[in-house]
Design a binder for these strands. Structure first.
Length: 108
DNA sequence: ACTGTGACACTGG
DNA sequence: ACCAGTGCCACAG
């Protein structure tokens, strides 16, 4: 598998239980801003990942049919709340840590 | 090198 | 809120 996919997969694996991230955010965190579609493609053909924690912009589920239902159920099972058809991002969006470093002094 | 393709993102009506 | 159009990136053939 290629480097890009490896990084994307690793990034997705960092999303903790009960949290979610968007395709675009994953792409940026992996170092490929704008490659949201690549994230989707990678997810489509990968196993053993918390795939259900990756959503479209605005916390919207982008799958169709049964898969969409399964994703919603999996998320709700980990305590993720929905607001209509989308996830309440204010409460559950996972912020990928910015390259470590100076954040301790930043906290007030 | 060129074209088509995605579980996308954004903007504008 | 719901499209349609346009921009995106990397990959497969």
């Amino acid at each position: 598998m290629m480097a890009i996919e490896t990084r994307i997969l690793g990034t997705i694996r960092r999303i903790p239980r009960g949290k979610v991230a968007t395709y675009g955010a994953v792409a940026r965190a992996a170092g490929f801003p704008g490659a949201a579609r690549r994230v989707a493609w990678t997810l489509h053909r990968s196993f053993g990942l918390p795939w259900h924690r990756v959503l479209g912009a605005g916390g919207e589920i982008k799958l169709r049919g049964d898969s969409a239902v399964e994703q919603r159920l999996r998320l709700e099972a980990e305590g993720v709340a929905f607001r209509g058809r989308r996830v309440d991002m204010r409460r559950h969006e996972f912020k990928f840590p910015r390259k470590s470093a100076a954040l301790k002094s930043k906290i007030r």
